[in-house]
């Protein structure tokens, strides 16, 4: 990428192969996607998890409060404190509160006019496992980005003469929010499900009492 101290002038007069023209913007978009995803992943591992021994990660937990109206069965509906407001707390992974999402390049349009200057045909013959000969033919197109518009005005011999010749290679990039990766969704689902209280059966309660004796 050119810095402010360097001059960068695209040279459209050079012959390029068609794959390079198409793949260059796609590679750039892919690199941008990787940069954004890597940043978020590092953030999650650094701030939402604590690294323990044996490279295990444990989620950073936060406390949430819950307020609920509870009916006091010893009172009658006419009593003022028949429904009591009870506040309790529960733990939740910090990860569940972070609005994680995937902002990524989801559409790249490469628009260019190309003047084909040469075409190379390659043929390779290889023998497969069963002894048959497989002939592979490949064609490689080379060309130049052709002039998209030319405007001439005035006398070419005068100083007022203007000539505008431009070559066009337009790259339109559209970024949007993509669905979260399946792995992140699974982790989120796992943690949010763990918020649910577990019903302890009478049998297990008795076992707990026996163990404590």
């Amino acid at each position: 990428m050119p810095t402010s101290n360097q001059s960068f002038e695209p040279d459209f007069s050079k012959e390029l192969d068609i794959e390079s023209i198409i793949s260059a913007p796609l590679v750039a978009a892919s690199k941008a996607n990787v940069m954004m995803v890597t940043g978020q992943t590092r953030f999650l591992l650094e701030y939402c998890f604590t690294k323990g021994e044996n490279n295990t990660y444990a989620p950073v937990m936060i406390t949430m409060s819950m307020t609920k109206g509870v009916i006091d069965e010893t009172k009658t509906p006419s009593d003022s404190d028949y429904i009591k407001s009870v506040q309790m707390t529960f733990g939740m992974p910090l990860l569940c509160l972070i609005p994680i999402n995937s902002l990524a390049v989801d559409k790249v349009t490469v628009d260019f006019d190309m003047e084909i200057t040469s075409a190379i045909s390659k043929q390779t013959a290889t023998a497969n496992e069963s002894g048959n000969q497989v002939i592979e033919k490949k064609a490689q197109l080379n060309g130049k980005i052709s002039n998209s518009s030319a405007q001439d005005s005035g006398n070419p011999n005068s100083t007022q003469y203007k000539s505008q010749v431009s070559c066009s290679l337009k790259v339109n990039i559209n970024a949007g929010s993509l669905p979260l990766p399946k792995g992140v969704l699974t982790i989120l689902d796992l943690y949010t499900k763990s918020i649910q209280p577990i019903a302890v059966s009478d049998q297990s309660k008795e076992q707990t009492i026996d163990n404590s004796k």
């Binding site: 949430m64 609005p99 929010s177 979260l180 499900k193 918020i195 649910q196």
Partner: peptide, 12 residues
């Protein structure tokens, strides 16, 4: 970058 479907299952 807003996760539109952020939700917590009700503990109750």
């Amino acid at each position: 970058m807003i996760n539109s479907d952020q939700s917590i299952p009700c503990p109750t």
